[in-house]
Simulated assay, not measured.
Amino acid sequence: MTILPPEPNLDALRLQLARLRGVRGWSYDELAMRTALSRRTLIEIEQGRTVGSLATWHALGHAFDVPLGGLFAALCEGHEPPGDNAS
């Protein structure tokens, strides 16, 4: 029997991006400048229209001074990571 991991919580990830941006008081333009990403990309990620690439999240992590593991931990909000319930 194959046990599949739970679906990642992409809403939590995008909300974390919005929180990080809001705490710093950064506009989309400010974050775009700090990441060299387009304002449109940032808006689309925050609004849930796209997930963004690993390179995008890497740039965001550097801008916020948060390691990727810290950013991506939000993907597991609401469920246990695979393997934690092993008997």
Rank of each mutant, 00 (worst) to 15 (best):
I45T: 04
P5R: 06
I3A: 08
I45E: 02
A63Q: 01
T41H: 04
G70T: 10
G48F: 00
W26R: 03
C76V: 13
E44I: 01
G22A: 09
L71T: 08
D11Y: 02
E80R: 02
D84A: 13
G83H: 06
R14Y: 08
E7W: 09
E30C: 05
A12Y: 02
D65R: 04
D65K: 06
A36H: 15
D65E: 12
G78K: 14
L17E: 01
E77C: 08
L4V: 11
P81D: 10
L20C: 02
S38Y: 06
S53Y: 02
W26E: 06
E80V: 14
G83T: 06
P6E: 12
N9S: 04
G22S: 14
T35C: 12
A32V: 07
R40P: 02
G70I: 13
L60S: 01
E44M: 08
E44S: 02
H62K: 15
D65L: 07
V23F: 13
M33Q: 14
G52L: 03
Y28M: 01
E30G: 01
L4Q: 10
L75K: 05
T2G: 06
P8K: 05
G25W: 14
L71V: 08
F64W: 08
L4G: 05
A59L: 07
L71A: 09
C76H: 15
E46T: 03
D84K: 14
F64A: 01
G48R: 00
L15R: 02
E80T: 08
P67W: 11
L71P: 07
R49M: 00
L37N: 07
T56W: 03
A12V: 03
L54T: 12
A73F: 09
E7K: 15
V23C: 02
L75Q: 10
P6R: 14
N85A: 11
T56D: 09
L37F: 09
D11L: 09
E30Q: 10
P67T: 05
N85F: 00
T2S: 13
S53E: 07
R19Q: 10
P82L: 12
E77Y: 14
W26H: 10
T35S: 15
A73E: 15
L75I: 13
G22E: 04
R21T: 00
R21Q: 07
L31Q: 03
L71G: 05
H58N: 13
L54A: 11
Q16H: 08
P8I: 01
T2I: 15
R34E: 11
I45K: 03
L37D: 06
R19F: 05
E77D: 15
R49A: 03
A86F: 03
H58L: 15
